[in-house]
Design a protein around this nucleic acid. Structure first.
Lengths: 220, 220
DNA sequence: TTCTTCATGTAATTAGTTACATGATTGA
DNA sequence: TCAATCATGTAACTAATTACATGAAGAA
């Protein structure tokens, strides 16, 4: 058993899921898909790998079972695991990291056509829509009280709200951008930047900066 | 020279920067920091690696120079590179991928204290604020006409708007969440989920779904 | 002249992904 | 009884990161 120093955020992601309840790797993978994947996406194979690491560090325990001739491992968190998780929750975390290929294609759109942008924006909206439908499903199940783990309802609400706000932000932007480019010539490089729209962002950013520094700011 | 099949999005990121103008690796790295890093973050060493790959594929050319005893390579895009870039811009791209460790800490906050959440949310707001200040700087320079590459102004506006909208969304959420948890008990697991707040997200998502399917939707 | 910052890379390591393989279960 | 889907992993590969090394230029 080595020290816990080399645990990654992904390790704690799995540890956190085990803190909710003991699970098989399959159940962990399902939970990843339904929840964590929106803000901490990882490949399936990680879900099989990390718990073994947690066991090695003494943060989780593995109960070996079987289904027919197949192995079946149920993992559960240990007291030491709970302490490690609490320490991780209390420690500062990283801010959001965004990878947005479609936006990069918009950014380099002057090497293509305005129609390329249009198609990309439609893809973005379709993407947002698809996830929205899932959110509505999950959200309704909570409202109807079918949500499991009522002790997690309050934090789920905080997280769910962010995820939906993000989709709303994304969809509104793609809608606005789609309207904006409607009048553009075929080549984006020939389009003129609308000064009104340009001011909008700068003003919004300035207002936000003022809002942060004035009332609830850190020097307050 | 092998085929272009194994180029990654990161390869095209660098190729796109070279399409703006020929650059040294240092200049490419600067551009990455100032622009692409917000939606396609990559380590510095990639900026030295990828252009060589582009040259190998015939998409870029390298002009070897020197500063004193040191090598100095200026890369530029080739006609074949421009065609490849145009094809990439026209092809469908990936939707946004978000990695948000702070949100994950909120998600697992019932293993810690409400104060842990409070600190994390303050970190999030500080993070947003810092980037906001940079955006204001960059945005103002454009408004004042100091922006280089006027042919890129229109697309820059589209991208800049999204980046600022995202920061606005993030900051508003963190502010709201901070107010929400003010009345929570020490243990988040003892907090009750506010049914009004819970409905907000679901309704917002439903409205968005309706908005998508009704007017500008794909079956239209 | 020395210190700091700017500039240009290479090497070693790793976190993560993709592809593969196969047993168990269910329903037509 | 056959096909589809659910379930449980392993192996190979790679994109990307971190750490290291050092020359050039400018400032004190």
């Amino acid at each position: 058993m080595s020290t816990a120093a080399d645990l990654t955020s992904t390790s704690y992601a799995l540890l956190g899921l085990l803190a909710v309840r003991p699970s098989t790797t399959y159940e962990l993978a399902q939970q990843m898909d339904r929840t964590l994947s929106r803000f901490w996406p990882r490949a399936r194979s990680k879900v099989y790998e990390e718990p073994r690491k947690l066991v090695d560090r003494g943060l989780a325990a593995a109960a070996e079972g079987a289904v027919g001739r197949r192995r079946r491992t149920v993992y559960s968190i240990t007291p030491k695991g709970r302490r490690a998780l609490a320490a991780w929750v209390a420690a500062p975390g990283q801010g959001p990291v965004l990878e947005f290929e479609q936006l990069m294609k918009v950014f380099f759109a002057d090497n293509g056509t305005t129609d390329d942008i249009r198609r990309t924006l439609l893809d973005t909206r379709a993407w947002a829509h698809e996830r929205t439908l899932v959110n509505v499903e999950v959200g309704r199940s909570y409202l109807e009280g079918r949500g499991l783990y009522p002790e997690r309802a309050a934090v789920n609400m905080l997280v769910g709200r962010f995820l939906d706000d993000f989709l709303e932000c994304l969809d509104r932007w793609a809608e606005w951008a789609g309207e904006t480019i409607e009048t553009w010539p075929e080549r984006p490089r020939d389009a003129a930047a609308d000064p009104v729209a340009m001011e909008h962002s700068v003003r919004q950013a300035e207002d936000r900066a003022a809002r942060y520094e004035a009332p609830g700011g850190p020097d307050d």
